[in-house]
């Protein structure tokens, strides 16, 4: 009797293990089903709408004849997101620098962090409502709806995302680099601009691109700040079209041509956001901070 006998794992336990693992795998598969369906429908319905004219003409607003393209919506989205980025990024990065380099653990910094957290949780439509109350209803700047007001609503949405992600990346910059620069006799502002920011740059760009991607897909805050129009405009004081708002409007129309335009616009919007997301991941891979 020299052989060692291992007591086999009971069948019940084995079955429980196999069953639970199967369920977990099944649920994971279920999570991906909508993704495939959405992408499939976007391509199937959206590609059919794509044509040269689709991208180069404005919507006509006509219910009977040719509905036109989506040029004004693409340009409006790009314009408003660009302005929002130009507003939100300097402020967001500035606040993040203050939190990491100056505020640190002070009560004021704790307060700022708390309020930024609060902002992150605010539904996008409430930001739209805020801009609507303060800038649109009051006819600020002489007009009610305007492209720049839409951009401000988007900037409010982006601000907490940019600040939070920039703060995380700035905290990753090793303190030894700051010390090396201080020990060389560098003034604080130069340490921040010449050493800390360049080191943190790739990581911050990732956060900013993801914030832009999020803002580009937002509909609710634009509906009652920039509203929906047909014509392309480069005047930020005018009402301005956008891809999400155009899709929202066309969903409500019981006309196949308009619905097809909505799918084409949706495919365009998703493609733009995917490009930004992929860019963000590529930049992140280049970052030297982990």
């Amino acid at each position: 009797m020299s052989s060692v006998s291992l007591q086999p794992v009971s069948g019940r336990r084995k079955r429980a293990d196999r069953g639970a693992r199967a369920i977990v795998a099944l649920f994971t598969g279920i999570a991906l089903i909508p993704l495939f369906f959405i992408l499939y429908y976007l391509l199937k319905e959206g590609l059919g709408a794509w044509s040269w004219d689709f991208f180069t003409t404005d919507p006509t607003g006509s219910f009977l004849g040719d509905p036109g393209g989506i040029k004004s919506a693409i340009l409006g989205t790009i314009e408003m997101v660009a302005i929002a980025t130009a507003v939100a990024v300097p402020i967001g990065v500035g606040v993040a620098i203050w939190l990491v380099e100056y505020g640190r653990q002070s009560w004021l910094a704790t307060g700022v962090r708390y309020f930024i957290d609060v902002m992150t949780g605010v539904p996008s439509i409430v930001f739209g409502l805020f801009v609507y109350i303060t800038l649109v209803v009051t006819n600020f700047g002489g007009a009610s709806f305007a492209g720049y007001k839409g951009a401000i609503a988007l900037a409010l949405l982006m601000l907490p995302v940019v600040t939070r992600s920039a703060e995380v990346v700035l905290l990753l910059v090793p303190n030894t680099l700051r010390e090396a620069a201080y020990a060389l006799g560098a003034p604080r502002w130069k340490v921040i601009f010449k050493i800390v920011l360049p080191t943190a740059l790739p990581g911050m760009v990732t956060g900013i691109l993801l914030a832009i991607a999020r803002a580009a897909g937002e509909t609710a805050p634009l509906l009652f700040t920039a509203t929906i129009v047909n014509a392309t405009t480069f005047n930020l004081g005018d009402r301005m079209n956008s891809l999400p708002a155009l899709i929202f409007q066309d969903v409500g129309q019981a006309q196949d041509r308009l619905v097809q335009i909505a799918w084409g616009a949706a495919l365009t919007l998703v493609a733009m956001i995917l490009i930004l997301t992929i860019l963000a991941r590529l930049v992140q891979r280049r970052s030297r901070l982990s």
Binding site: L35, F37, I38, Y41, L42, A213, A216, G217, E218, T219, A220, P244, I247, F248, V251, A262, W263, A266, L269, V270, I273, L274, T277
Partner: peptide, 11 residues
């Protein structure tokens, strides 16, 4: 998360 809300609505 990259699919915008309005596209979920459309789909």
């Amino acid at each position: 998360a990259a699919v915008p809300s309005v596209v979920y609505g459309l789909w």
